[in-house]
Design a protein around this nucleic acid. Sequence first.
DNA 1: CGGGGGTGTCATCCA
DNA 2: CCTGGATGACACCCC
Length: 616
Amino acid sequence: MTRLDRSSHSGGGHGKGSRPLNSLLAGHRVAQPASAPGSRASVQDIDLIDILWRQDIDLGAGREVFDYSHRQKEQDVEKELRDGGEQDTWAGEGAEALARNLLVDGETGESFPAQFPADISSITEAVPSESEPPALQNNLLSPLLTGTESPFDLEQQWQDLMSIMEMQAMEVNTSASEILYSAPPGDPLSTNYSLAPNTPINQNVSLHQASLGGCSQDFLLFSPEVESLPVASSSTLLPLAPSNSTSLNSTFGSTNLTGLFFPPQLNGTANDTAGPELPDPLGGLLDEAMLDEIGLMDLAIEEGFNPVQASQLEEEFDSDSGLSLDSGHSPSSLSSSEGSSSSSSSSSSSSSSASSSASSSFSEEGAVGYSPDSETLDLEEAEGAVGYQPEYSKFCRMSYQDPAQLSCLPYLEHVGHNHTYNMAPSALDSADLPPPSALKKGSKEKQADFLDKQMSRDEHRARAMKIPFTNDKIINLPVEEFNELLSKYQLSEAQLSLIRDIRRRGKNKMAAQNCRKRKLDTILNLERDVEDLQRDKARLLREKVEFLRSLRQMKQEVQSLYQEVFGRLRDENGRPYSPSQYALQYAGDGSVLLIPRTMADQQARRQERKPKDRRK
DNA sequence: CGGGGGTGTCATCCA
DNA sequence: CCTGGATGACACCCC
C-alpha cells in the first residue's frame, strides 16, 4: 500500500507521492481553472480578493505583491470585456475610467469623475429653481445622505463600488451572472439593476458623481459648526408645523427614487451631453443609489459567493485563528523543519502527500534510507538485509521520506529509473552482468537483468569491489556499529573508501529527499497561508460591505425623517418651504434649524475646504 | 526534440 | 576533527 503511494521512483507511477503536490501547485498557479474541484479558491473568492487588492492599491500596496495566476485569469475574463489588452487590470481600469470621463489618481490609482468639482457646484448652487423637482430632491435629500461621512469614506465606498462593479462585470461572463443580477424581489433597484449588467461602470460614474456631489452638502445637517453659525435670523428658525406633505412625499419618496437612478442620462456620455441643464440633480439621491448599489453588490457578492465556500469560510474563519495555526496543521511546517528529522510525528500529519503520510508509519520506516535501493533483492544479501531492517529502525533517524518503505518492493522503486549515469566505467564493467543485448531471453537472465537494473550505482560498485555487506548497512548503521562492522572484515583501502563514499552518498541521498520534501511542504504551507489570507480578506470585505449596507439603511431612515420633517414645515403663510431655498440643519445640541440654502451652501463649502486644506 | 518533474550526486556550510 | 544534516547546483532520466 504505502509502497505504491511512494512509487515516485518508478517510471510508470512517476511520483505518485509527489505528483499530487505538484498538481496542486500547478493548479493554483496556472493550469487548473479556479472552479475546478481541486481548487480551493473559487472565482467569487478571487474576485472578492481582487476587490481588496484594489483597496490595497488605494493604500499604496502594489497589486503585484499578490499577483498570481488569478490575475491572469481575471485578465482573460476582462479581455472579453475590453478591447485593449492592458497588462494590469487596474491600469486597464484607469484607462477605461478615462474613457468614461474619469480621472485616475495617479497616486492612489483611484478613479473619480473628471467633472466631479463641477458637479458639486452644480448641485449646491445651480439648482435654485423650485420648479425643478430633481433639484428639490437633491436639495432635500443630499444633506442626509452622506452627512456622517468624510470624503474619504465616500471614496472608499467608491472604491468598493468600483471593485464590486468590476467583479460583476467579470462575472457577467460566468455562470454566476444570473445569480449576481438576481436582486431581492423587494429591492426596487433590482429591475434597473438587472437591466444594465453590461454597463456597470457607467453607472458607477454617475453614482460617484452623485455621491461626491451630495457629499458637499451633507455637512449641513450634521455640521459640528452649526452652533457657531450666524443663523440668519429668527425668522429662519421656524417651528416644525405638521401639515400635509403630499407633494413632498410624492416628490421625494424614497420609493420613487429608484426610477431615477438609472435613466439613460446617467451614463457617463449622457452626462456629458446633458449639459448644465442637467446638473446632476440626483446628486444626493445617487449617493443613496450608490449605497443601494453597494447593497446590491453585497448581495451579489454574497450570492455569487460559492455557498459552499462561503460556509466553509465561515467555519474556517471561526476555526482559523491565524496563519500560525494553519501552519501548525502542517506537519512539516517551517517551524517544524528544525526538528523534523528527530520526530516522526512531525511529518505524520502532513497534509500533502501519500508519501509523507506513509512516512509517518514508523513500522515501515525500518530501513530509512538507502537500503531499499536494491540490496534487499540482492540474492546474496537478501536475507541479511531483510532481517536487518527492523534493527535499522531503532537507529535510523526519521526522515520525510522513507525509502525503506520501498525496500520490500524495490522493483517498484526503481522500475525504469535507474540513475546509473556517471558511474565509473570500471566499476560498471566489472560489476555489471553482460549487457541486455547480449543476454538470451531466458527467464533467469531476464530476472538477473531486471535485478541488475534495480541496483544503484553504489550497489554496483560495492558488488564490483566485493564489499562483504549491504549498502543498506553501510548507510544506515550507526557510527559505532558501522565501525564495528568494518573492523570485522579485512578491507582494502579502495574498499574502505568506497564504503565511506557509499555511506556519505546514501545519507546525502536521504537528506536530499528530505530536503525536497520539506521544500515542497513549505511551498504548500505558504500556499495555504495565502489562501487563508485571501479568505480573511474576503471575510473582511464582506463585513465591510455589510457595514456599508447598514450605513445606507441608516441614511435612508435619516433621509426619510428629513423629508418628513421638512415636508411638514410651513411658513407664516402656511405654505411649504422650498427645498431649494431652505435646508434643515442638525445642531450639535440635538435641535434642528431651518436655514436658508445659501447659508447652508456656504457652510458646506467651508466644511469642504477644511479637509482639503488639511490634506495640503 | 524540448521542457518539466523527479532523482541522485557533489560541494559546501554548519552544528 | 569527524560525522552527518541541510541545501544549492548540476546532471541525468522519464514522461
